[in-house]
Design a protein around this nucleic acid. Sequence first.
DNA 1: ATGAAAGCTCAAGTCAGGTTGAGATCAAGG
DNA 2: CCTTGATCTCAACCTGACTTGAGCTTTCAT
Lengths: 156, 156
Amino acid sequence: MHRTDLIAIGELAARTGVAVSAIRFYEAKGLVEALRTGGGQRRFLRADIRRVSFILIAQQLGLSLEEIAAELARLPAGRTPNGADWTRISTGLRARIDAQIAALQRTRELLGNCIGCGCLSLKKCGLYNRDDKAAQRGAGPRYVLGDRSGEIAEVG
Amino acid sequence: MHRTDLIAIGELAARTGVAVSAIRFYEAKGLVEALRTGGGQRRFLRADIRRVSFILIAQQLGLSLEEIAAELARLPAGRTPNGADWTRISTGLRARIDAQIAALQRTRELLGNCIGCGCLSLKKCGLYNRDDKAAQRGAGPRYVLGDRSGEIAEVG
DNA sequence: ATGAAAGCTCAAGTCAGGTTGAGATCAAGG
DNA sequence: CCTTGATCTCAACCTGACTTGAGCTTTCAT
């Protein structure tokens, strides 16, 4: 319907709420692609609004940009993704959400059992067991948390 | 019971699973305190194992070290915290967990409604409404997400 | 008494996810 | 045509949470 199917970076930014600089950054990371005008300016497809929105949602769920790129790579190449395509990849997110909820519920219980009772014996409780990895959010420097493998805290 | 109520940094590290360097870092940030031997080495109380464990749990829940320091500051000064003390401050965490679970559940539903149906009109759905702030984890550079205030994505 | 293991300090580096600034160019309304 | 606002590139900087390395000292089991 609209005649301008291509939008400038500023409009994409305004529509999604992310900064122009962030969109350029995402492009550099391969999360979005842009056409160029004769003068070298970026032009995005309207469909990229949804793509960027997906990035935002996935980020809130704790995926790193690299992981998000991997998800987005599953969208069809060459054609604009349709509803079914989005449904498919958002299903993966749903699994992640469920895992996170489960992990939080477990943490919630254990907080009552362990800290509450005063033992806080994490090893015994399993607050830090490997399966808790699902609960790990926040990329980057916290990778230490991810390296945790065996023997954890046990109060004295 | 134990005669050695003071432990070296290496033991604290081993007991909690965090790196020695991280413990020094936490001390620098005021999250833990250490006594010193005549020769200048740190000696921690056994109770600090629990303190560090608390830091880890709180971190998993998305609190920044600064926020964690604020929580820990509510523990009694001068005496070793008892079970009731820990229960009190872990109650704050529980509220946070509940908020996070609620936010995730909302996101889960909306994922079905919005991405599933193919609209992904975030403004309409409210996937990015301000109350979603509770869902924000990961400190640092993502503060952009936190600055989001009004008009967000609407596919066009 | 001694030597390896563990600790100390301080400065600098790392990584993710961006932001900021300079200086130059493009696009569009009047 | 011209000006104004949007965009461009590239390099540098930022924050949070640590790690790494150098050079030196303390502990403690033998």
